[in-house]
Design a protein around this nucleic acid. Structure first.
Lengths: 247, 247
DNA sequence: ACGTTAGCGGTACACTGTACGTCATGTCAA
DNA sequence: TTGACATGACGTACAGTGTACCGCTAACGT
């Protein structure tokens, strides 16, 4: 942990003015990943984007993972809510969650950054905002953190699923790929291992099921709906706890 | 989509008996990733594990991504609930969710498989089980799917966070890395950009905050607690809808 | 028993991250 | 202004990756 933190605490090495800045490097990396895809983000490609030699990057960053930590924190910066947060905790958390979702949608490849980067300045800012959002609830730090973490988890899970379903979602009308799917599913059902699938096959049928699932996956309100249900669960518990205390 | 499905529908190519099977190959891949880490899972390493030449693998699989699709589906197989599901929908979904979490904990590297593999036989089985779990609710396919997807998203989000916090969680007592953290956070607070953090710094202080957060992150009941809150939210809505219909 | 051909796998290539070492230039002391 | 020198820049090289191509060998249908 301490070692991982070093990316953020390491002092500037010398007295000479470097030609680039970490912010500039992170921004260039994000630009490449956005326009050409995450796979194209190599040290060589990034260096050429900056008009620098490949190995020059290694004076700003110890490894590629450190670079990705910089990129990660830059995106954490994008997801901060500008201005003041609403007083009401649900509104505040909803705002934060939406903004996080939007940032991830803008840079979906960020989900492929899988190492656990130590929290950078913007990561801590996000934590700060989230904790502030629920500060009026009179909970302990631990309880507040549980709520905040649950929301973060929700956003990540949602975006991960959305990404996985991305290729399926942009197909508009039933389309011709339905035939391949029908054949495939027919084969599965024949094995007898899919009782529920077989039942659904009979009643609403493939076409209707497909349409309903597609609608579900690409429903723009689904994010808010499920978030509100999660918050409902928390709120109900808070209510219960409060009434118990009164008694 | 149709092309992606091809991994599962492609017929056996010739009449000769192959030396290996896809199941065997996937199992070997999982073994390597489990014991040596996901990075070590290269085509060469996998081939040597099977006692085969590297290029031989390409007769079972078109690309490494296809191999990962096989691996993905094998793990989907691990997460299926054996035997019958409870009748009560919450108990059934909870069981499924727990089992999924356990499978991912056993193979955390699966979260690094980031392409969107077409649903394999076991993936569809998981869908089948989940849909069965909520079949008694009298909902449309689309509504059932929304609930099922929300649970899947929850599990993924939870496991992703758990993985990110893994290195932080296994540190037992406050430890010496707390000093590095204190110094780091002091620096951040000095910038004035972290009002809530500063407030928390004053009241419960670093040590207590750290302890509470650590406890939260590694609380074994957190998974169930938040899952139940999500399901509470769904159930409340179902109740509301039902009473509205009666009126 | 034989010819066909599908499974097998060696070699080669373009690409990756990065260790090492040299070059040249910005900065400070004089 | 000039020199010394630390430090930023970066070319080369290496071990590793996924995989295209192509010959080889052995198992099968006849």
């Amino acid at each position: 942990m301490t070692e991982a933190l070093e990316v953020w605490t390491r002092p500037d090495r010398g007295r000479r003015q470097p030609r680039h800045s970490r912010e500039e490097i992170a921004a260039a990396a994000i630009r490449i990943a956005d326009t050409e895809g995450f796979d194209e983000l190599s040290m060589r490609r990034l260096a050429s984007e900056l008009g620098a030699g490949t190995m020059t990057l290694y004076h700003y960053v110890r490894t590629k993972d450190e670079l990705l930590a910089l990129v990660h924190d830059a995106i954490m910066g994008e997801l901060l809510v500008p201005g003041d947060l609403p007083d009401e905790w649900r509104a505040a958390l909803t705002l934060i969650a939406r903004r996080a979702r939007d940032a991830i949608r803008r840079h979906p490849w960020i989900l492929e950054v899988h190492d656990d980067p130590a929290p950078g300045p913007n990561g801590v800012r996000h934590w700060d905002q989230s904790m502030q959002a629920v500060s009026s609830l009179g909970l302990s730090v631990g309880e507040r953190f549980e709520l905040v973490m649950a929301v973060d988890e929700y956003v990540f899970g949602f975006c991960l699923m959305e990404r996985a379903n991305a290729s399926a979602a942009d197909a508009g009308p039933p389309g011709p790929e339905l035939d391949g799917m029908r054949e495939y599913v027919d084969g599965l059902i024949a094995s007898g291992d899919y009782p529920t699938l077989a039942a659904i096959w009979d009643d609403p049928g493939l076409e209707e099921t497909w349409t309903q699932m597609q609608r579900q996956v690409s429903d723009p309100d689904r994010f808010d709906r499920n978030l509100q249900r999660l918050l409902d669960g928390f709120e109900a518990e808070l209510g219960r706890r409060r009434s118990r205390r009164k008694r």
